[in-house]
Simulated scan of single mutants.
Amino acid sequence: MALPELAPRRTFGGIVAVWVLAALIAIVVGVFAAPDWRAAWLGVGLGGCLIVAFATQLWSGRSQGFTERVAASILGAALVMGVISLGFGLAALVPG
């Protein structure tokens, strides 16, 4: 018999925290990495976001919806990193 949680922790904050981390990683990679190495470093950054997403969701202590929360974290992180890298790619096309 499962007991209901008396005061469940909020889980959306952990998902958004991974998205913010992904944005920070993408900006740092876009600014400091050489254009030829940006894609490789973005992959490394996304791997780091995966580890942080697992750690964040394990820390919340809720087993219900664990897979969905981690998937939402990683999918959002990939989208955030993709949009930011698209911006850096378009900026590289503009002559300056």
Rank of each mutant, 00 (worst) to 15 (best):
G14M: 01
V16M: 06
A40Y: 09
T11A: 06
C49N: 10
P8A: 10
A78M: 14
V28L: 14
I74V: 15
V28A: 15
V94Y: 03
A7W: 04
R69C: 00
A77F: 08
A23V: 07
L93R: 12
R62G: 01
P4T: 02
P4Y: 03
A72N: 08
G96W: 10
A55H: 05
A72D: 02
G13A: 05
G82C: 09
M81R: 00
P35E: 11
L50S: 15
F54L: 15
A39F: 10
F12N: 08
A71T: 15
P35H: 05
V28I: 12
G47A: 14
L75R: 07
A26R: 02
G87F: 13
R69E: 00
P4Q: 02
I27F: 14
P35G: 09
G89S: 12
V16A: 11
V52P: 01
L6W: 03
I25A: 07
Q64C: 07
L42G: 00
L86F: 14
G65L: 08
R62C: 00
A34E: 13
W19V: 00
F54I: 05
R9S: 02
A77S: 14
E68C: 00
T56V: 12
G13D: 04
G45Y: 07
W37M: 09
Q57F: 01
V94L: 14
A55N: 07
V83D: 02
A77P: 11
A17R: 08
Q57Y: 01
G43D: 08
L6P: 02
F88Q: 03
L21A: 14
L90C: 10
V16C: 04
A23L: 09
V28G: 04
Q64W: 11
V94W: 11
R38Y: 01
G30Q: 01
A53S: 15
I25P: 00
P8R: 13
E5F: 12
A39L: 13
G45V: 04
I74P: 10
L58H: 07
F32S: 10
G13C: 04
